[in-house]
Simulated assay, not measured.
Amino acid sequence: MSPAWGLRRAVARRFREPAAQAGDPGHAARLATYLGDLLEPYALGAPGGMAGGQSYGEMAAALLPDEPVDALVLAYDIPDVEPGRATATWLSHVCPGGPMALSVSDQGRAGAHTALRLLRDYAGSGTYERALLVVAEQSALPYEPGVPAEVPAEHCAVALHLGPSTVEVARPRIVRGAGPHDVVDLLGEAGGATVVLGGHLAGVGVKADRVVLADPAQPMTGVWEALASVDGPAVVADFDPALGYLCVSAFGC
């Protein structure tokens, strides 16, 4: 991989309206049947409606680049309003370049860092140099999950456009079993880089000239939305209390 592989730009968008499918009675009925069948063995009760839900496919499609890319990864945590769609495959079809595409889920906040690590490793192998990482979350959870879960306040998606760049991406670090204050040692001295901290890291005394706090109401996308507003070198750090993952990704450091 060329040392110049990294972040080209980051684009964030909040979606104020629900997906068209979310208001379709036929889709709602099929979704209720599907979710009910999945929930029944776990005695979690009947699913509610997803009238206000959003589609990760539609959200991601709104952030696709005009130029072709080689690889696309969708990272999410909250289920999609359209679980019947193979979203990554569909995005490969509509994205310029027909990229290799996959999804990363069930890792909480670590999902986006895992996706970034995968794309960096793919680029390092000499394939899939130009890439797109889409981090998305929608705010409708139609059932009680039975475990602690943080549901976002709004629908949001962030696209990280990756490829030849002077803003090199270091290999993301994901530490399991860590606590919020372990981020101080993990980050070390950030120097002139802006440090973006997830909601559960607010108040931790990191050594940095500038610290930006992500919106705590957006568990998955908060840090990446904040990154999109930062100029220059940046370090993104997030902590998932449910899974005990401490994650750090550096850009241009």
Rank of each mutant, 00 (worst) to 15 (best):
R120K: 14
A159R: 11
P96Q: 13
A75V: 04
G52E: 15
M59E: 02
H155A: 14
Q21V: 14
R85D: 00
E67M: 03
E144Y: 00
V135W: 10
M100Y: 15
P68L: 10
S139T: 02
G163K: 01
G98K: 03
A101N: 05
G23W: 02
P99G: 06
D106L: 14
T87G: 00
T33Y: 07
H93G: 09
L63E: 11
A159P: 12
G53L: 09
S125T: 15
A60T: 09
L44D: 04
R109S: 03
L38V: 05
C156R: 00
L31D: 03
C156E: 07
P65K: 12
H161R: 14
V158P: 03
L116G: 04
G146Y: 02
S92P: 05
A159L: 07
A51H: 11
G53Y: 09
G23D: 01
A71C: 01
A29H: 08
L141M: 15
L35F: 12
P68D: 14
A157F: 02
D37R: 12
A75R: 11
S139R: 15
L160I: 05
P65H: 13
Q21R: 10
L116A: 06
L74A: 06
L31E: 11
A75K: 09
T33K: 10
G146W: 04
G163I: 06
C95Y: 13
R109E: 12
V73K: 07
G108V: 08
L141Q: 06
E129P: 08
P142R: 06
A32R: 14
L116R: 05
V104W: 09
V135P: 08
Y122T: 00
A62K: 09
M59F: 03
A22R: 08
Q54Y: 15
P83H: 09
W90F: 15
A112E: 02
A62Y: 10
D24G: 00
G98T: 11
A115M: 04
E58Q: 15
H93I: 03
L39I: 01
G84R: 07
I78W: 07
A112D: 00
V158C: 02
P145Q: 02
P145F: 10
P79C: 07
P25I: 01
G124Q: 05
R109F: 02
Y128V: 01
V104D: 04
G84Q: 05
A62V: 05
L63D: 14
E58T: 11
T114M: 11
A157Y: 05
E129T: 15
G48L: 06
L160P: 08
Q54A: 15
P47A: 10
A140M: 14
I78K: 11
R85S: 00
D66L: 11
V147K: 01
A28G: 08
A159Y: 10
Q138P: 13
P47F: 08
R120F: 09
R117D: 14
